[in-house]
């Protein structure tokens, strides 16, 4: 017993801050929010148990919940592939035959660092305003641009473009992955006269699959959590006509504007389930489409 203690004590001292944090800031709150999701709670009076009431309302009667799901899923479905294709395309351009890639890499990464800031969200509102830069460029080629931000049909695309603009981190991860592909494979293919496109589908894509998978999971989770830019661009409400009602924005408003903490907790738990499901699906299906290099098949 004493030896057990002596062996483990130092490690747990180092682990202590994280352990406290884990119980007080992660596990505790998650369980608490599970409990709250079965209650009506307005922060003034004590939580009142209402069973499945919140979830029932959410799935059967709350139109805005379904709208928020639609907006968020559309965003994820558009933004993630757009961003990953940009990232992979640019990474492949940078990977081969260029000696001075440092400058480009820096330029392409910078938006990813700035993109989450309020300043950029403010800027985006103006770029896509009716008299903004985007419409002026379109006017030069004779296209009458929409009022992108205030038109419910187009507002979501402004955020998709913002997501595309921030392709820097998946690009860096792709670059590292591309470095790991042996050059002689391409040389052999070149000698055999394999066309570029087939080199891409037969060498690059299969060998890059683990990295693509990693980026896909990471970016999907990130995109579900999008908040600040949607909040700023939609004036904090999801406007126009709820077309920017991101799930997180809806949750925030239910909780901190209307103080429906119980209902917001139910929303939060459903978000957790969605993200967990996506991660699980990605991991369990990965063995069918991701081949790691050290595997023999």
């Amino acid at each position: 017993m004493r030896r057990f203690f002596a062996r483990n004590a130092p490690a747990y001292v180092f682990l202590l801050p994280w352990l406290i944090g884990f119980f007080l800031l992660a596990l505790g709150p998650i369980l608490a929010s599970l409990y709250l999701s079965f209650t009506r709670y307005d922060m003034v009076s004590a939580p009142r148990w209402i069973g499945w009431g919140n979830y029932e309302y959410m799935f059967t009667r709350d139109r805005r919940f379904w709208k928020a799901l639609e907006v968020t899923f559309s965003y994820v479905a558009l933004a993630v592939p757009a961003r990953l294709i940009m990232a992979l395309g640019v990474a492949m351009l940078l990977d081969k035959g260029l000696r001075t890639i440092g400058v480009y890499r820096a330029i392409f990464y910078l938006p990813s660092l700035l993109g989450a800031s309020i300043a950029i969200a403010i800027l985006w509102r103006q770029l896509f305003a009716a008299d903004g830069v985007v419409n002026q460029v379109l006017a030069m080629v004779g296209i009458q641009g929409a009022s992108w931000i205030t038109d419910p049909d187009t507002s979501l695309y402004t955020l998709v473009v913002l997501a595309m603009w921030q392709f820097g981190s998946p690009m860096l991860i792709f670059l590292a992955g591309l470095r790991g592909i042996p050059r002689d494979l391409y040389e052999a293919a070149e000698i055999d006269g394999t066309p570029r496109w087939r080199q891409f589908t037969r060498i690059t894509l299969p060998l890059l699959a683990p990295v693509i998978f990693f980026n896909l999971v990471l970016q999907t989770i990130e995109s579900f959590k999008t908040f600040s830019s949607a909040f700023i661009i939609s004036n904090g409400t999801g406007a126009p006509a709820d077309s920017l009602l991101f799930y997180t924005v809806y949750l925030f408003n239910e909780a901190f504007k209307f103080f429906r903490m119980g209902y917001a907790s139910a929303l939060a738990w459903f978000l957790l389930v969605i993200i967990a499901a996506f991660t699980a699906i990605a991991f369990f299906t990965s063995k069918y489409w991701v081949h790691y290099e050290n595997e023999r098949d």
């Binding site: 505790g28 709150p29 709250l36 903490m261 939060a268 978000l271 993200i275």
Partner: peptide, 13 residues
């Protein structure tokens, strides 16, 4: 993996 929004409300309370 846990979104900040999930722990937000209990943390706030």
């Amino acid at each position: 993996m846990i979104p900040y929004h999930v722990v937000l409300i209990p943390q706030y309370v």
